[in-house]
Write a protein that binds this DNA or RNA. Structure first.
Lengths: 197, 197
DNA sequence: AAAGCTTGTAAACAGGCGTATACTCAAAAC
DNA sequence: GTTTTGAGTATACGCCTGTTTACAAGCTTT
């Protein structure tokens, strides 16, 4: 008997646009580009389907807008070099536990195959993760080392997605720290480490 | 003017079934479950679309048949414990260079989001990779260590897919060896390794 | 040779997708 | 108070998906 069954929402272009954007961010992050439909986004945002096209042009355009709003990982990489592996390990351990709130990597790792998105995903991974991490590294083959650390990130996320989340133990964090140290170490051949000669 | 434009193929149920299976194996491995259509498979196998349904029931059934035919990784894991990290590293380096011919992991890592396939993919990853690797490990938290090594595999594949293949250098293999050693090491807290005290 | 089962084919089905169009209606402008 | 603007809506379009149906053609058995 309520005169308005659904609370009438005031007309607000910007607010609606933002609702769509947030819904898309959450859904793309959870399920990936191709698994999420425009209708799902519109329903989650409680907006009409046509508004997605109106405000973002297309589904791919909306995806690009989501990526543009992501904050990046420079905070994570801004550590003293000797602190970096543990910082990365702690972040990766957090990714083992549950999906993050604002996940470039997560969105990207779930949106690989669609060709329309592949290029933008690749560029985003490079500019948001690999390039800044490479810039933090000194010594030879900084790019290869940054790539390997990024690969571990991708792998952790893929694993969680596959077999479910895991509560990381302190031993896991230690292990991850050692893994990232191995990824980022300058060399393993001509270093005076604990050799097995 | 040739009386048969396309060379007439003799009727052979088993051969046709095998052609479909092989085409599906290749395509699923390259592009993942959802990106590959039944029509693509039928075209690659030079078979009629309806035969896919007839011989495999459904697309998901065909995917399951592909997975069942995969050889598994027991050969890879059958190494002396001290050899295992390098064996894994060499295999992972191979995966950096190009996609393998018969890739469970590759198929799985590309077919995550589709719910129909998710469960079979999860089970396959567990039984084909994580479980046997865990069985090879002694000491505490063998499962967590196996999971982390598997995560590195997944990450390497995801990275190659994202930014393209890379020719692995000897330094890469060394680095990967150290990464897998870190993944599989029994502990990092209470071990008498090169501590930094 | 005729019947019957099997292999392969062509076409259509229902449903979901991203997108586009015509419209309603609230609110601001005059 | 009327007009104009634009946010929001309902609906349909064309396309592609996995699947199924009805049919043609071969091989085997009788």
């Amino acid at each position: 008997m309520n005169p308005q069954v659904t609370e009438a929402r005031p007309r607000d272009r910007e607010a609606t646009r933002e609702r769509i954007l947030q819904a898309a961010r959450a859904l793309f992050g959870e399920q990936g580009y191709e698994q999420v439909t425009v209708r799902m986004i519109a329903a989650a945002a409680e907006a009409n389907i046509a508004l997605v096209g109106r405000y973002f042009g297309s589904k791919a355009g909306l995806f690009g807008a989501v990526l543009q709003g992501e904050p990046g990982y420079s905070v994570l990489f801004d550590s003293a070099p000797e602190e970096l592996p543990r910082r990365l390990a702690e972040y990766a351990a957090e990714r083992m536990r549950h999906p993050p709130d604002s996940p470039i990597l997560r969105t990207l790792e779930r949106s690989a195959s669609h060709p329309e998105v592949r290029e933008v995903a690749r560029e985003r991974l490079l500019t948001a993760v690999i390039d800044p991490l490479e810039a933090k590294l000194s010594g030879p083959d900084a790019r290869g080392r940054a790539r390997m650390a990024a690969a571990v990130f991708l792998g952790i996320g893929a694993m969680r997605r596959r077999v479910g989340p895991t509560e990381p133990t302190p031993a896991d964090v230690d292990r991850l720290t050692a893994v990232f140290e191995a990824c980022l170490a300058e060399s393993f051949t001509d270093e005076s480490g604990p050799d097995l000669g």
